[in-house]
Amino acid sequence: MTQHNAVQTAVITGAGSTRGIGRTLATRLARAGWNLALLDLDEGVVAELAASLAADHGIQALGVGVDISDEQSVDSAVSRVEAGLPAVTALVNIAGVSSPVPFLDLDLATWERVLRINATGTFLMTRRVMPGLVDRGYGRVVGLSSTAAQNGGGTYSKSCYAASKGAVESFCRAIALETAPYGVTVNVVSPATIDTDIMGGRITDDRKPAFLAQLPVGRLGTTNEVAALIEFLIGEDAGYITGATYNINGGIRIG
């Protein structure tokens, strides 16, 4: 096993959304001195963000376009990251899609699209990055789940989204066991209602009461709160935590 050095490089998928967790996390990590690979379907958006964060914080940053559901696209994107930045130390799988389609209206194409992006995308990204982490004897991986996986759906998303996030949780627990001897931790962050566009667009005043009614804390979660948790889990202080699911849900599910 190699010794971990002080240079930290994080790969964040789904970093392009202007109101998303990925962009907030990227900003926090840049401020803390991390080098960043920002991945998204829209390369132009993450390239611009990477350039801005590099200029503002004196880090190395790269924006790369990727379709996480496509194996060749993932391989190409990660190869560019490996060629352009210091060795990857953390992977955060944020990219995903939601689905409000009720089960009785759900067709196979929708099911397969959501599972392909959320579950298979997490698998493809992790499989491509993990060998390097194992070879270097150090790494952090975080998958993004949802309270929907535990509650059987949510205020917005329904069965296929819940199933895809349940797959992410089980997958992360399994690879946590397999990779722990190599100095790699794998954990899951499971938010409830966060005010991002994955909730079907902006949570407007007329939509808000339906979401707030379920939340004991009486407010929506913020992308900064989720990003802070992820930042901890990919840091050196979290080395004794692996295979865990962290609920960050305002009390909507206890336990």
Rank of each mutant, 00 (worst) to 15 (best):
V88C: 03
C160R: 02
A10H: 01
G16E: 10
L144T: 13
G152E: 10
G139A: 07
D67L: 09
A149Q: 10
A51E: 14
G250Q: 04
G143I: 01
D56N: 13
Y156D: 00
V186H: 01
R207K: 15
I12N: 01
D237C: 06
V78F: 01
I254E: 07
A192F: 12
I117E: 02
L38S: 02
A83P: 00
G250T: 09
R113I: 08
T185K: 07
A119T: 15
G251P: 02
A238L: 07
A32K: 14
P100Y: 13
N118E: 02
C160M: 13
G20S: 03
E43Q: 14
V78A: 02
K158A: 10
D197G: 12
G84L: 03
I203E: 07
S76D: 11
I234W: 02
I254G: 00
V92L: 11
I248E: 09
S190G: 04
A210C: 04
F103G: 14
A95V: 14
A119D: 07
C160K: 02
G183N: 03
G14Q: 03
Q214K: 14
E178H: 11
I230P: 01
E112V: 10
S69E: 04
L115T: 09
N35D: 10
P216D: 00
R128C: 12
P181H: 07
M130L: 15
G65A: 05
R173Y: 06
G239R: 10
D56Y: 09
I59M: 03
S145C: 11
N151F: 12
L41H: 10
T122S: 12
A148W: 03
V64I: 11
L49H: 12
Q60H: 13
A50N: 04
G44V: 10
L91P: 04
C172M: 15
A77W: 00
D40Q: 07
R31Q: 11
A26D: 06
Q150R: 15
G183I: 08
A6V: 14
V184E: 00
F123D: 00
A47M: 06
A6G: 12
G153Y: 06
Q214C: 01
Q3K: 15
R28L: 15
A95S: 14
G251Y: 06
G201Q: 05
V114F: 00
T155K: 08
G33A: 08
V81P: 01
A149M: 10
C160Y: 01
T126L: 07
L38R: 09
R127P: 02
E169G: 01
A54D: 03
A47D: 07
V81K: 05
N187K: 06
G14F: 11
V226L: 11
A163Q: 04
